[in-house]
Nucleic acid binder design. Structure first.
Lengths: 249, 249
DNA sequence: CGCTAGATTGATAACTGTCAAGGGCGGTGG
DNA sequence: CCACCGCCCTTGACAGTTATCAATCTAGCG
């Protein structure tokens, strides 16, 4: 769990890995990012990193753990509209709106980097990084569309299956998947608030997936035992996450 | 229905009106846009303007009618993930992905403008227009998030109410709302595919809204009879559509 | 004036939510 | 090292919402 700055520079932090997936970076770009990724701090689970109504500025990156974008209803109901996994960057610099329309909070203990406005501009001044960040933003938007599809036209079980497939691809992109497994350090209530269901129903749907031999969960580690069948049932096609042909299963 | 080029230049087409809402434009910007908006063509209802898998290039603008972004499931189920109303622009130039992940189709007869890649770059070369288009894209993304909230955490009636409120604000921004009314030239099936429901259930929910005296529909014209109550029941807060304080009801 | 897509409506089934009561596991303090 | 506590996971019974299936009605259009 401990991250040594030297280690980051050597192996590359998740943000670097992710952006490299979108296009080749120069040595100097990597160095800039590595430096940037070394300035991390810890945030406990359930903490708000950004509140709705905050003035947008700077950037926020996740290097460990899961965070999310979410909104609340007056009755307390929460809807999660995006996961921020290691390597993901929220860029508030480009936001032309004067207030942020959603909150950002952690779903687990997270290691994060807060980038001040000036530092953010320095990073964006590097063409390759600017391009990478922009690509990442477009992918995030494609994910939003796919989630709309998920909520509107897939059943409970399919929604979970689709989400798990998406996360596998995203975790692989930052080197955090091990075969068809990855750590999913979030609660069933979080899954419920993601998929528009109840935690009770999430529990039952997970049970269904387990009984069908499609997934397995040991502690926080999720394994997609039968990825082809999962992908088929969820009609998961990873094209929205990549430029080219995805990694083989 | 007929649009005279001179008329557009004089009154300003919907795209111009929309972008002006995001920030002041120079005369030359307006002229460039007006010229651009004069090159329209008609598309019949139910036509595909962009197919999933197309290579992204150029831009596409709507000046009359309703279009949408959508995806299909293998069983034919459709999910609409965005409405394109007059003034809206789909920009495929900035898409770094090599294939479009969704289709764009008309929901009614539409007047559209297809902008070739070079022309699109000419427009973006104007700083004010570039800024405006970028703001528009960010608003579109905010709308996606709000739709996720809608699908995940609002009831059938609330979803419709929220959608109608959002469309009122958006139609006002392009001068196409008359008081609390506007033309909604789409079918109940389209509403169903937007809100993740069935056309049957849309019909019943609309009936509920009508019986409650909240909306009224005469032909294609929708009237929000009791906007305050509608906004309250849907917890509609237009902050995600604007920079500043919205127009009073 | 006949056609056809879209709007309505009723009856019934399926899915998902709500309420409530345990059960289990990790984490903390003694 | 162990007991206690709290959060989360599970499970059952029941209610509410939404989907399905099918038939009828209606309005715009050629």
């Amino acid at each position: 769990m401990k991250v040594v700055p030297g280690g980051i520079a050597a192996t590359g932090g998740p943000v670097l890995r992710k952006l490299q997936g979108f296009g080749r970076l120069e040595e100097a770009d990597a160095t800039a990012l590595a430096l940037f990724e070394s300035g991390t701090r810890l945030a406990p689970s359930g903490a708000d990193l950004i509140c709705e109504g905050d003035r947008p500025e700077g950037m926020l990156a996740i290097t460990e753990g899961f965070a999310c974008r979410y909104k609340l209803r007056e009755n307390g109901a929460r809807q999660i509209m995006a996961y921020l996994i290691p390597g993901d960057v929220c860029d508030f610099e480009s936001s032309v709106l004067d207030r942020i329309d959603h909150a950002v909070g952690t779903l687990s203990t997270c290691r994060i980097v807060r980038v001040a406005p000036e530092a953010a501009r320095d990073l964006r001044a590097r063409p390759a990084l600017e391009r990478g960040l922009r690509t990442a933003a477009l992918v995030d938007e494609a994910i939003l569309r796919e989630w709309i599809m998920n909520l509107g036209r897939r059943s409970a079980v399919e929604r979970l299956a689709h989400l798990f497939c998406e996360l596998l691809v995203r975790m692989r992109a930052v080197g955090l998947a091990f075969g068809n497994s990855y750590d999913l350090p979030i609660t069933q209530l979080d899954l419920a608030d993601t998929t528009g269901m109840t935690s009770v129903h999430v529990n039952r749907s997970l049970g269904e997936l387990k009984r069908a031999g499609l997934i397995e969960r040991k502690g926080k580690r999720l394994t997609l035992c039968d990825l082809p069948r999962l992908m088929e049932m969820a009609e998961f096609r990873p094209n929205y996450l990549h430029r080219e042909v995805p990694v083989a299963a």
